[in-house]
């Protein structure tokens, strides 16, 4: 049954990737408040398009791609503005306050947020999501050369930011 498979696939994908995607969103976003919304929306989009879940191998790629897209602020604002997502924060605020607050204080996170968006995206996909440069290029719609350039400049900027006394 299609429905059954789908639910199973959803659960399976959730278990395998939800948490890491939450991390991905947290690193890409400049506000932690939207992380869960972005990941939820990505799951909903990918799983409600049947064609996209036929190949489980590709599900993670689709999910990451969607998280990246949604994390770009204009899109995210649009979603949140439209309130497509229900019950955005209350749950998480209470249950996860500690982790998210901690995140806000994290020096690395602060430094990451100081980077240009492209640099941040490249570093996060490359190092957190562990993609190859080619995968990063594809996901971000950049050339391989741009990925290399953003990556090296991003690392350099991050190095400076982390060494800064603040």
């Amino acid at each position: 049954m299609a429905a059954g498979t789908t639910v199973d696939h959803l659960t399976e994908t959730y278990r395998a990737h939800y948490r890491s995607l939450l991390g991905l969103a947290a690193l890409l976003l400049d506000d932690t408040a939207s992380c869960e919304d972005v990941v939820q929306e990505a799951f909903i989009r990918v799983h409600s398009a049947r064609g996209r879940v036929r190949d489980p191998e590709k599900t993670l790629a689709y999910l990451r791609q969607t998280v990246v897209n949604l994390s770009r602020s204009a899109l995210r604002r649009r979603i949140l503005g439209l309130k497509l997502l229900s019950k955005p924060m209350p749950d998480m605020a209470s249950a996860e306050e500690g982790a998210y607050e901690q995140l806000e204080r994290d020096q690395l996170i602060k430094a990451m947020r100081g980077l240009q968006r492209r640099q941040r995206e490249v570093l996060v996909l490359r190092y957190f999501a562990d993609m190859t440069e080619a995968q990063v290029a594809e996901t971000l719609g950049l050339s391989l050369g741009s990925v290399k350039a953003y990556g090296s400049r991003g690392i350099a900027a991050l190095r400076i930011a982390m060494e800064a006394p603040v």
């Binding site: 639910v7 959803l10 659960t11 959730y14 939800y18 948490r19 939450l22 991390g23 947290a26 690193l27 992380c35 869960e36 990941v39 939820q40 799951f43 909903i44 799983h47 229900s86 019950k87 749950d91 998480m92 249950a95 996860e96 500690g98 982790a99 998210y100 901690q102 995140l103 994290d106 690395l108 996170i109 957190f128």
Partner: peptide
């Protein structure tokens, strides 16, 4: 490490379902 402590909302899977 920075994001390692993030946990899904308790009802995250249920909302997706």
């Amino acid at each position: 490490g920075a994001v390692g402590d993030l946990e899904p909302a308790p009802d995250a899977l249920e909302r997706l379902r």
